[in-house]
């Protein structure tokens, strides 16, 4: 799995992830508060200038934005048909500005930085006993680790269908995939506990359930 992060050392790379996310949130609130095409066009220009100053190159920019631009185009066409050109222009400019800035932040913040930020953000939740902040990093690591294995299992099940001349149905594909994958939960949990990654208390909890 390839991340959308682009390595580099620009000012945006060095800015703290919390600040970048906060900035994006403020930017989006401001954009949704206005309908003026001039202000929104200025926002598109600002986001475009920030993106251009990262010097990712046209090819990478296009790759990152093409799917999202398709969604934006569809939404713009619908707004045009339903509400007229003024609203459609506002929707188009607002979404392009937001999408470009968001994609730029995604490209300049590494997965590790994001996980650290999320873990730090989860600390208040930990204090009220809702989650363990450190578990988040562990869980994210587990997901990334097991995606290729689930895919391999899916292919094996699909090949088994083909070998038997069976039609591939959602039910007959999903059920064995889920059972085969979840069956390993006990071993993985035991391996995690054996290494004491989550501390002693959780192991006792695990035995109880």
């Amino acid at each position: 799995m390839k991340t959308l992060y682009v390595q580099g050392n620009t000012w945006l790379h060095r800015l703290s992830p919390g600040l970048k996310l906060g900035g994006l949130a403020v930017f989006s609130l401001l954009l949704f508060a206005t309908r003026s095409p001039v202000v929104l066009a200025a926002a598109v220009f600002l986001a475009g200038a920030i993106h251009a100053s990262m010097r990712f190159g046209v090819v990478r920019t296009w790759q990152q934005l093409r799917v999202i631009l398709l969604s934006i185009s569809i939404l713009t066409v619908f707004t045009l048909l339903l509400n007229g050109p003024a609203d459609a222009l506002a929707v188009f400019l607002r979404l392009v500005a937001l999408a470009v800035l968001a994609a730029t932040i995604t490209a300049t913040t590494s997965t590790a930085e994001f996980i650290d930020t999320i873990t730090a953000g989860a600390r208040p939740l930990e204090r009220i006993g809702l989650v363990k902040a450190a578990d988040l990093g562990l869980a994210i690591g587990l997901v990334v680790r097991f995606v290729p294995e689930v895919l391999a299992r899916y292919e094996a099940i699909r090949d088994a269908h083909r070998a038997r001349g069976l039609k591939q149905r959602p039910l007959t594909l999903a059920v064995p995939l889920i059972i085969q994958t979840l069956r390993h939960a006990d071993e993985i949990a035991a391996a995690i506990d054996a290494r004491g990654i989550r501390g002693q208390n959780n192991r006792k909890l695990g035995e109880g359930s």
Binding site: L142, V143, T181, R198, G206
Partner: peptide, 17 residues
């Protein structure tokens, strides 16, 4: 949350991905 439940959730997230 028990380790097992955390692992089950992570495995299912991998399935969704």
């Amino acid at each position: 949350m028990a380790t097992r439940d955390l692992v089950l959730a992570a495995l299912f997230a991998a399935i969704i991905v």
